[in-house]
């Protein structure tokens, strides 16, 4: 006697729920994604600070950052190209020249970052940001 197995009906998996889930995930990632290209600049360099402290640089430039964001050296306001030139000259004289920035509390953050950016581009490796605190 030949027993014939009954043919199973082919299983149909509906794709519609999967598409729904994928679309929901897609919209979620599209909405929550951030497209800012973010970088960082170190604000604290304890190791470098300790190393720099042992070797005193011959040239030290005190750059003040005025409230409007303009850098000044010895009371003279400087444009970015003029400052870059001064920094390069100082670095030629002493490659370990230190740049000390004394910013005004009213200066915008962008001004300080631009100044640090300019110094880093000029090749300054020894940089410090000072902050004066009111005595309590």
């Amino acid at each position: 006697m030949i027993l014939s197995r009954r043919k199973r009906p082919s299983a149909l998996i509906s794709l519609v729920p999967m598409i729904d889930v994928m679309l929901i995930l897609l919209v979620f990632f599209m909405v929550t994604s951030t497209y800012l290209n973010l970088d960082m600049i170190p604000a604290l360099r304890p190791a470098e600070g300790a190393a720099a402290a042992s070797k005193t640089p011959e040239v030290r430039l005190m750059i003040r950052l005025q409230a409007d964001g303009t850098p000044s050296l010895r009371g003279e306001a400087l444009s970015p190209p003029a400052l870059a030139q001064i920094l390069q000259k100082a670095l030629e004289e002493d490659p370990t020249a230190q740049m000390v920035i004394l910013p005004s509390g009213s200066a915008p953050t962008q001004a300080l970052i631009s100044l640090m950016d300019l110094a880093a581009t000029a090749g300054v490796q020894n940089m410090r940001v000072l902050r004066l605190e009111a005595r309590q």
Partner: peptide, 11 residues
């Protein structure tokens, strides 16, 4: 809006 810088490193 973070400040702009050209010498920033990858975060």
């Amino acid at each position: 809006a973070p400040p702009q810088a050209q010498t920033g490193r990858d975060m």
